[in-house]
């Protein structure tokens, strides 16, 4: 019956494409989390009134973040082709999409991290200082744990954006569900393939969101 609805779908390649999408998304999410966290911390800490308050560094970081956040992703993909070639020796395949995915998502996540860190009560930081905590302990034991629910819900949102970015990356040869929908579905006029790929993307997004929400719920003790 399912083959009547989706006559042109090759389920093996659909599965393979799904795995590629999940692979790209997961690695990109992990790298974005780390890079975004570092950038977000830098944005927060160099801001006025914080530990490393430093106007030039803050301005430069903010500018970089804003620039990369503003470039449309499809253009960023093309712009980064030489860089990806240099880094990985190829511009094809799921791994080749990673530099662009991370460059596109990390600045976005950095802003979310910065917002999350700002929400941490200044009084709690003051309390930690009054106990003789140094900057390292305050970052590791106060700032990050206290903002964790915001950091997790932020990476969930970013992760979902990343799934849609992988589809775009597919259009320039990264593989995955976007690639499948474009080549097999659009170019060969097989709308059922496009539709099946869409459903697969939706399922992946749904799983991401559910896991993210669940973790946020578990760690939020406010």
């Amino acid at each position: 019956m399912i083959n009547d609805v989706f006559p042109n779908v090759n389920w093996d390649s659909m599965w393979e494409a799904s795995l590629e999408t999940v692979y790209m998304s997961l690695i990109a999410v992990a790298m974005t989390f780390v890079l975004g966290l570092i950038l977000g911390l830098l944005l927060y800490l160099t801001d006025k009134g914080n530990f490393w308050a430093n106007k030039p560094v803050h301005a430069v970081t903010a500018a970089i973040v804003n620039i990369f956040r503003s470039i449309p992703f499809i253009i960023l993909l093309i712009l980064l082709i030489p860089f990806t070639n240099l880094l990985l020796g190829t511009m094809l395949g799921p791994s080749a999409a990673l530099p662009a995915l991370i460059t596109g998502a990390a600045p976005f996540y950095a802003r979310l991290v910065e917002i999350g860190l700002r929400e941490v009560d200044k009084g709690v930081i003051e309390a930690a200082q009054s106990m003789g905590a140094g900057q390292g302990s305050i970052i590791m034991k106060v700032l990050l744990p206290e903002s964790m629910p915001a950091l997790v819900s932020g990476i969930t949102v970013t992760g979902i954006t990343l799934v849609s970015y992988t589809a775009m990356a597919g259009a320039i040869g990264a593989g995955g569900l976007g690639d499948l929908a474009y080549r097999e579905g659009f170019q060969r006029t097989q709308p059922d393939v496009t539709f099946a790929a869409t459903v697969a993307v939706l399922i992946i997004v749904f799983i991401f969101q559910t896991i993210g929400d669940w973790i946020t719920y578990k760690i939020d003790k406010r």
Binding site: E126, A127, E146
Partner: peptide, 15 residues
């Protein structure tokens, strides 16, 4: 560490 402090709004770590 010799001089500790308590606060009007407690300033506990909620996590």
């Amino acid at each position: 560490q010799e001089i500790s402090m308590i606060f009007q709004h407690f300033n506990l770590l909620w996590s």
